[in-house]
Nucleic acid binder design. Sequence first.
DNA 1: CACATGACCTAAC
DNA 2: TGTTAGGCCATGT
Length: 92
Amino acid sequence: MKLKGTKFQQQVWRYLLKIPYGKVKTYKEIAIKLNKPNSARAIANACAKNPYAPSIPCHRVIRSDGKLGGYSGPGGVKTKEKLLKKEGFLVK
DNA sequence: CACATGACCTAAC
DNA sequence: TGTTAGGCCATGT
């Protein structure tokens, strides 16, 4: 199959898939792991535009403040919060 | 190439 | 502690 998005996005999505169940990562952490410590914003951008929405746990990504940030899926942050709680992560 | 957008971060008030 | 302003990055128009 043909991969979608740019190399950067693919990198981000690949890392999202590495996040284990019940775990959450911050945009900054991911940015650092990708060797781009200041690209937190771009990371969020990639997550929001990921074409594999249901396949990628983009809801496991939160802000460095511990807040949820946002969610492009149905229900918005509300759904995100529910998913995280379901996975055992208590939202602040 | 220049401008605008967004699920961000940090500092300053 | 809450709000404002500036900076940073990748993408799309």
